[in-house]
Amino acid sequence: MTNNTEFKVGLFIIITALLILASIGYVAYKKDVFSKTYVYTLSSTTGENITEGTPVVFWGFNIGQVSSMELTDSGVLVQIKIPERNNRVIRAGSRFVLEKPLLSSSRIIVYTDNLNGLPLQESAVPELTVSDDINELIKRGQSIAEKLDMITNNIASITGDMSDPQGDVKRILKNADKVTALLAEKNSLGEMLMGNDESVRSIEEIIKIALDIAERTEEITGRLEALTQEAGEQLYGGEGILTLVREILDELTVKLAKVEITLDNLNKTSAETVDATEDLSLLREDVDETVSAIRNLVDDLDRMIPFKAESEIKLP
């Protein structure tokens, strides 16, 4: 009996202990406990929203985490630990941005344009910039809207210039008419050369006007070219303002939908479980503010976009 009991007890302890050790070992292996880790120091102006364990993300993948933070005279030094297998994405040109999403915890996003660049030295202290998700998006949208406004005004001024009776184009046209009329008045250049003083003054005037026309045409052509290449590109090109505006609108629409769904769920949860807590009401206020900000921006952009249809550039 005892030997049998001893065997059963021994077997149970061995199997269960092995299972536990294997599980812990697997988790430790997957968490890179056994692999070499690189520690980089980032400088930040604030330690807000950063805690030990804040994930470091590259292309949506967790590649490391914040291991410690230190307050210095010039700001906060944030140490991040990156396991060896993920270290190849940390290059000398990498940018580190602290993202503060509205509805989840903060994370440090790594942007590396050139993955083949020189590796980042552990002694280097790159800056950790702060991105504020929706607010950042709104800011970006607003700056583009301002730019768009400027370009709209430029185009309006150019097109206005073209239709203005005192404008360059009209003057060119007028001068051109004048030249044509003068040329029609005198039958030929030879006849003019052999004409009277009036004829000579007329020729001088024609030359002057021709030069003026050439100069102004050149200037206007340049401006029109600039308008079509730069403004047109900026307006309608692959990376044009309107395309960006559209992207931002799409992005905002998605964010808005998410915010609304989450808000609904939060309302449902709070109604089912407990009365709205202080945290929940704060969150709701944030969400409401964000929704309102997004709607304002959408309205602004909606007002700007119709210009495309109205402000057509009519060349003379």
Partner: peptide, 10 residues
Amino acid sequence: FINQFYFTSV
């Protein structure tokens, strides 16, 4: 220990 463990866990 063995007897107690047997009754408690196994």
